[in-house]
Design a protein around this nucleic acid. Structure first.
Lengths: 221, 221
DNA sequence: GAGTGTGAAGTAGTTCACAGCC
DNA sequence: GGCTGTGAACTACTTCACACTC
């Protein structure tokens, strides 16, 4: 039994939110229990993976029955730290920053946008979708006043590293980077990236390699 | 030599665009050759990985010297299928769809937005950032007329699977899904996902587990 | 009988370490 | 001497298969 083993593989962590969403759907449709097989289907993975993933959280299933939807949902929310809100700041009040502030999906899911932050004084004071733009110099104050733990970088690539450093200086250790640039953060910080063009380039690769190119000559058979 | 070995690991494919970007920077600053070490630093990975990744494309380096920046950039663009444009359609002309149409980053990188597509007749005919909204019934025609091979799903979650099916029916086999929903596509199609809330939830997990919880009791040492 | 929990086997990806070439 | 290219060792993740519990 050896304490509660507290190391959950990264790959598993990345799937927990998908299970969470599936569980939320099951609650909506008033399903009381769910098998690993059903959950696997909903999450688009296989059943063995679901069972192994869930086993890292603890033994919350019942053999012969399945998992109690509500109980599992609660445990998973707790594990993911979603039992309370996490206010975020969006760095960069340009197109992307505004669009993200505008996008309801964050607030709805427990990540209210506490502020937009920009270096351009002409943007400071403006409001987008109810979110005010503050000057980057005020970041430390905003972060501590509003308990912001997560920063979203929505600046041009050239500014991304400097902005990451500002977030770090303001005590923000979780960063979601939308800028198409590689940034480095201290060891103890978490960094996730979303790079739209990169995803399209990956699709392009597979597109390129899918159809046997009619121009490919020379190699018969 | 056994032909040219044509299986590149997925993990490698996902890194190629990052190398590509680094190489583009090197070209800008007129650097002629680059070592795996330098490239690794720029891409935020380690040097052995760079060498192994590049070796899948072929032996484009020179021992004792490094890689010719321009030549490698060209080879990599070719491999990624970026020597020509790939027009895309954006499915869903709501907030997110409009924001994506508005975001210059796609067109700049060789993925011009051929059309926005929506089911709502009141949106059809409108223009966002120079991109016209078409009715979803016209999708097959648009796709074939404009050679669209990539579709971007920017609809609400509830519509995502139906839209994916419409894309498939229109012969589009590469899909980038922004909707917070699991969708399935035929075996031969490629699917990538971008889920903003999911990324924040992952950060929340690590945030939650980072600080040694002061309430954690019992285990001394 | 049904369905979880998990060791064991299998697979993919990473890193090491060094032979080989410039 | 410097740096690539790559087998070999290692690590992470996935899947299988079955003992175990309800």
């Amino acid at each position: 039994m050896a304490d509660r083993v507290r190391h959950i593989p990264e790959a598993t962590v990345a799937r927990l939110p998908v299970y969470l969403r599936s569980l939320a759907e099951l609650v909506d449709e008033k399903t009381a229990t769910v098998s690993s097989e059903r959950l696997a289907e909903m999450a688009g993975v296989n059943a063995a993976k679901v069972r192994k993933d869930l086993s890292y959280l603890g033994s919350y299933g019942t053999r012969g029955v399945g998992y109690d939807v509500e109980y599992l949902l609660f445990q998973m929310s707790r594990e993911l730290g979603l039992t309370h809100d996490w206010p975020v700041v969006i760095m960069g009040a340009g197109n992307l920053g505004q669009a993200l502030a505008n996008y309801g999906g964050f607030t709805d899911r427990g990540f209210p946008v506490a502020a937009l932050v920009d270096a351009d004084p002409s943007k400071v004071g403006q409001t987008f979708h109810g979110v005010e733009v503050h000057h980057v110099d005020d970041l430390p104050k905003i972060a501590s006043d509003r308990g912001v733990r997560i920063g979203i970088i929505a600046t041009p690539a050239a500014a991304a590293q400097a902005v990451a450093d500002q977030l770090t200086a303001a005590g923000i250790r979780s960063i979601l980077n939308f800028a198409p640039a590689v940034i480095t953060v201290p060891e103890e910080s978490s960094l996730r990236k979303v790079d739209l063009a990169l995803e399209l380039q990956i699709l392009s690769f597979y597109q390129q390699h899918s159809q046997p190119d009619p121009e490919a000559s020379g190699s018969r058979t």
